[in-house]
C-alpha cells in the first residue's frame, strides 16, 4: 500500500477533511519524524512504537559484487521498535 492509498482509507475515517488536507497531515507527520531523527532524538508513540538511532561501529566487510575486502565506517541507522498495543493487535 502506498501513501496515497493510505490517504484514501483515512478519508472515510476523517469525513470533515478533504483528501488534500489528509495528504498534507500524513506528509507533515512523517517529515517531522524524519527531522527529529536527523537531530538524533528519539520518538516514542505509546502503543504504536518508537523510532530511535542506533550507532553501528566500523567493521571490515566484503563487497558483494567482487568479494573485495572493504572498510565500513561507523554510521547511524534509524530503528523502529513496535509497541505493545501494535503487537497485541497483530496477534489478536
Amino acid at each position: 500500500m502506498t501513501r496515497a492509498e493510505l490517504v484514501v482509507r483515512l478519508s472515510s475515517k476523517m469525513p470533515d477533511k478533504s483528501n488534500h488536507e489528509i495528504e498534507k497531515i500524513v506528509a507533515a507527520l512523517f517529515e517531522e519524524i524524519s527531522h527529529t531523527l536527523e537531530k538524533g532524538h528519539r520518538i516514542e508513540l505509546r502503543g504504536f512504537g518508537s523510532f530511535f538511532i542506533k550507532k553501528r561501529g566500523e567493521r571490515r566487510g566484503v563487497d558483494p559484487r567482487n568479494g573485495d575486502k572493504i572498510h565500513i565506517d561507523s554510521h547511524h541507522v534509524p530503528v523502529f521498535r513496535p509497541g505493545r498495543v501494535l503487537l497485541q493487535t497483530l496477534n489478536s
Binding site: K24, I25, A28, L29, E32, G40, H41, R42, R46, F52
Partner: peptide
C-alpha cells in the same frame, strides 16, 4: 542515542504549525 524523546504532543505542535489545525 543522546538526549531528547519526542512524543505525540511534540509532533502535534509541529503539525499545527504546518497545517494550522
Amino acid at each position: 542515542m543522546s538526549g531528547k524523546t519526542v512524543t505525540r504532543v511534540h509532533l502535534s505542535q509541529a503539525l499545527r504549525k504546518k497545517t494550522g489545525l
